[in-house]
């Protein structure tokens, strides 16, 4: 199932990208380039060949590990992705690490104290998260925590760790025992991670709340209480365990979505991630880059869906794998 989906995605993106009425070679060459250079570029990248030929070159390259040459950066697309993807991945992980636990907790509180003050507060919080422009939130956090308080930095990822193993700065810092960069990297990721987490946190809260409310009404909750179990156990072991099933699957997909590159957050905090790269690639018609990012995203989504399916089966014994 996975392979056809991925192929389908690349086909569609490929077609759209190449159908745009503009000459990519001209754009890549720059305004001042003489016509011979433009033609050279066209030859080199088979732009004069029919679409299916170009597609063939592309797929065969992909499989061999050659994801094309990124024109906006003058280096291979794969190199660019290896730079930018871990940055986005790290940011997304920390954003989710904030969004999920906090979101679930607020959702539970909301559901249990329904229509009382904690519920109203947390619903306002969630609503603001969904409606607040992430751009505005980011700038606001910079203003408060950088300009006025000076607690956190406003841009960048921090000091590069002395050895790069994964591209995830915090992990690499720990692995290379570089504590100066560890401190700097943690400090740099806090504001952007909080900014990025906000919308997902809101969604998690709402989903958990509604899921919990549904579950709390069910008979087996009555049974659990009839057993004399304390409320905490009923809520967390009996209700939440069931309520989490739909919520976590949403979280899995949210994660994949965020990985697509949170352009706005990355722009505000100058985070060198996939979002900015993809945006730049699109505005300069850097086709190989666009294709590379899309392909990567397709793969990520497919994997995320797979993981979500597995999670589902693990959490809910009523669902069996392999169907």
């Amino acid at each position: 199932m996975l392979i056809p989906v991925v192929i389908g995605v690349t086909l569609i993106t490929f077609t759209i990208a190449y159908v745009i009425p503009a000459d990519p070679a001209r754009a890549w060459a720059g305004q001042k380039a003489p016509p011979e250079v433009v033609e050279q570029i066209r030859e080199k990248y088979h732009l004069n060949d029919p679409l299916y030929v170009q597609y063939y070159y592309y797929i065969s390259g992909l499989v061999r590990g050659d994801w094309g040459y990124s024109h906006s950066e003058h280096r291979p697309v794969l190199d660019c992705l290896m730079d930018y993807f871990p940055a986005t991945f790290e940011l997304t992980i920390w954003a989710m690490a904030i969004a999920i636990p906090v979101g679930i907790y607020l959702g539970v509180v909301s559901a249990v104290k329904r229509n009382k003050i904690p519920d109203h507060l947390s619903r306002i919080f969630a609503l603001s998260g969904v409606s607040m422009p992430i751009f505005w939130l980011g700038l606001l956090l910079i203003l408060i925590f950088y300009t006025y308080l000076g607690w956190f930095p406003a841009s960048g990822r921090g000091i590069t760790p002395s050895h790069t193993y994964t591209g995830l700065y915090i992990l690499d810092s720990i692995l290379s025992l570089d504590f100066q960069s560890l401190a700097s990297d943690i400090w740099h990721i806090i504001l952007p991670a909080v900014t990025l987490s906000y919308a997902t946190l809101a969604v998690m809260t709402r989903m958990t709340r509604s899921s919990m409310l549904e579950v709390l009404r069910l008979d087996y909750i009555k049974t659990a209480r009839a057993k004399g179990l304390p409320d905490k156990i009923v809520i967390y072991r009996h209700a939440l365990r069931n309520a989490l099933i739909p919520t976590l699957t949403v979280a899995g997909l949210a994660f994949a979505g965020l990985l697509g590159g949170a352009v706005l957050t990355e722009t505000i905090f100058s985070w060198p991630g996939m979002g900015r790269y993809a945006y730049h690639a699109i505005s300069t018609l850097d086709f190989p880059a666009i294709m590379g990012v899309t392909f990567l995203m397709a793969v990520i989504f497919v994997i995320a869906n797979l993981i979500v399916d597995i999670m589902y089966a693990y959490l809910d014994p009523r669902i069996k794998l392999g169907e």
Binding site: L139, Y146, S155, G156, I268, F269, P272, R276
Partner: peptide, 14 residues
């Protein structure tokens, strides 16, 4: 430093 957002550059300068 490559910082695309003008507000961020301003804050750092100030």
């Amino acid at each position: 430093k490559n910082i695309p957002e003008v507000a961020t550059r301003e804050q750092e300068l100030l």
